[in-house]
């Protein structure tokens, strides 16, 4: 059972680079995503915002599968900067998981 980890949310916030607070949870991004990965990007961002670190770490492949094509961004009614958020998560995983 995944747990919320407030320290994870705090750690992510400390970089000042992840911002999906404006997300309305409408699901347009997932509907238009050419990769057809259900987690991308809405659910993934929700896990980050809620601090569900386990779920993020279980889904590393999805984080790197994003094409950064921004089709979701041009369709997003809340103008969330999806590609930059995904890029930040990669940066975070590179540092914390892969030690790059």
């Amino acid at each position: 059972m995944p747990r919320m980890d407030p320290l994870f949310a705090e750690e992510v916030n400390s970089f000042g680079r992840f911002d999906a607070r404006a997300c309305l949870n409408c699901g347009v991004c997932s509907a238009v995503c050419p990769m057809g990965i259900e987690l991308l990007p809405r659910k993934l961002f929700r896990y980050v915002l809620l601090g569900v670190k386990d779920r993020v770490l279980e889904n590393v492949q999805a984080v790197y599968s994003c094409l950064l094509c921004r089709l979701c961004e041009v369709n997003c009614p809340a103008q969330v900067r999806v590609a930059e958020n995904v890029r930040f998560l990669r940066y975070y995983l590179n540092k914390k998981v892969f030690q790059i």
Binding site: L67, L71, V74
Partner: peptide, 12 residues
């Protein structure tokens, strides 16, 4: 609203 060629996923 162009559809991506998929290329950015190629390296992984």
């Amino acid at each position: 609203f162009t559809l991506c060629c998929g290329g950015p996923a190629e390296s992984l």
